[in-house]
Design a protein around this nucleic acid. Structure first.
Lengths: 146, 146
DNA sequence: ATTACTTCCGTAGTCAGCTACGGAGTCAAG
DNA sequence: CTTGACTCCGTAGCTGACTACGGAAGTAAT
């Protein structure tokens, strides 16, 4: 595993990945990110790979994954045995596709709403809730109300 | 907004929406879901619209929205004035599209991984982290890849 | 080699989002 | 008209994910 230039201290890493130092330590305790060797009586150093990993954790969180789930995903990144890995990957893939699907429905309805608002600026409602269980149908329902 | 048959007690509603009774009460306190009138010295009744609303909250949570954000989204559902509503909708639309984009990248890499595993079942790693900033879209975030 | 800033590490506190508890009231069934 | 399940309501406790605190020790610039 190549670290090009592990030159950052934990403070620099935190700045680079846009998280707090204490968050990094917390993730180290949780084994979400590796804790590099401490040179005898010295200070740990970090590199670009650590920045990436932290940013991945943050992004995955925004997508609704818990730290436990993220740790699963990172096991795939880190290389696991194929059998278990592929089972996990397939499971996560279903999760991800469902999320994409639901977000797609929300996107559609929000988009329609914005258009409607531009078209005639009255009061308007947005059938967001209904969007989530509209069957695979791509039906264009544009219900409006004043 | 017509409720066809508001016949459920809070317990039935909880079962129907697959949440705990106490969660419903909590959401009522937070004004995420309405608290129906209590008939003098009686018990509140709920209908299908309440089930839908609860399920929407749960789904949105799994997609990474906080309860505050969900309450914003529900304001759109409930009908707000066009000007503010459309600003909010546009903002949320950007959020949603970004989430879809990121999930799409993760999906792609997970999918590839599953295939690879089926192809030759050795140890394998999955460039999940890198997937999130693979160019091709969105534009303004760059970091050179090796 | 003194000063000012970090790092390190452990423990404790915070905030969001529930979840449990307890006592009084309601209601359908027997 | 009692029993047992459930509702109502307030308050307290819990879990996940941080965030803050404090003291010793490392490090960089003067």
């Amino acid at each position: 595993m190549p670290d090009k230039a592990n030159s950052l201290t934990i403070g620099g890493l935190a700045k680079a990945a846009n998280v707090h130092v204490e968050t990094i330590r917390y993730y180290q305790r949780r084994r979400l990110v590796p804790e590099p060797e401490r040179p005898p009586g010295g200070i740990r150093r970090y590199g670009p790979a650590d920045i990436e990993r932290l940013m991945f954790v943050k992004t995955a969180q925004q997508l609704g994954f818990s730290l436990v789930e993220i740790s699963d995903l990172l096991q795939l990144e880190d290389g696991a045995h194929c059998q278990e890995a592929s089972a996990l990957a397939e499971h996560k893939l279903r999760d991800v596709r469902e999320k994409i699907d639901q977000l797609g429905r929300i996107e559609k309805v929000l988009g329609e709403m914005v258009e409607q608002c531009h078209a005639h600026p009255d009061n308007i409602t947005c059938p967001l809730i209904a969007s989530l269980h509209e069957g695979g149908n791509g039906g264009n329902d544009q219900r409006e109300r004043t």
